[in-house]
């Protein structure tokens, strides 16, 4: 490990908006917990993702400077791991499990239905910015396959109709 002294300049202004500073608090706390050492990168990115909803470019630069990690390495780590997103999420998020149990239980058909019924493809956000659709690799709720997460709430034994209806409600139209 490298000997890490004080970070170069921890008070870099990320944005003039004061709201942002509040969101940075969790990020700063995480980095300080690890004394701004480079190995805190993944934990810090988790903190950024949690407080900003995604990895904003300015924040990535700030993290890189504070932890003394090369910019390209920060980007490399951010894109290697699928938990991180570089795009702002939609208002709501729907995660469909594509683990083995859920796939065998028919989650592929749910994704097909979403594509056909709502025109949403996994990994993307609807054009109205309302819904982001993601796929997961097993939520650990295989007993309830097919499973999904609607805005953080795990729901089991899904079927296409149920999912289409919930998404339709989010987007403000009925089926």
């Amino acid at each position: 490990m490298k000997d890490q002294g004080a970070p170069p300049e921890a008070s870099v202004q990320v944005s003039s908006k004061s709201v942002e500073d509040r969101r940075l608090r969790l990020v700063n706390r995480t980095m300080q917990l690890y004394r701004n050492e480079a190995h805190a990168l993944i934990e810090t990115l988790h903190a950024v993702q949690e407080s900003f909803g995604y990895l904003e470019e300015d924040v990535l630069k700030y993290v890189a400077r504070t932890l003394r990690v090369p910019l390209s390495r920060v980007y490399a780590v951010a894109t290697f791991y699928h938990s991180f997103s570089l795009k702002p999420p939609g208002e709501h998020t729907c995660v469909i499990c594509m683990g083995t149990a859920c796939y065998i239980g028919g989650s592929g058909a749910i994704l097909d239905a979403l594509r056909e019924g709502e025109g949403i493809v996994s990994g993307e956000t609807t054009s109205d910015g309302k819904v982001s659709l993601l796929v997961a690799r097993c939520l650990g709720s295989c007993g309830l396959a097919p499973a999904g997460v609607f805005d953080g709430e795990v729901t089991g034994k899904l079927d296409s109709e149920h999912v289409l209806e919930r998404i339709g409600r989010w987007r403000g139209h009925e089926h």
């Binding site: 594509m98 683990g99 083995t100 149990a101 690799r137 097993c138 650990g140 709720s141 295989c142």
Partner: peptide
């Protein structure tokens, strides 16, 4: 890390 999709022993 329990990456095997469809396994949930370690989680439990």
């Amino acid at each position: 890390d329990e990456g095997d999709p469809g396994a949930f022993m370690d989680r439990s």
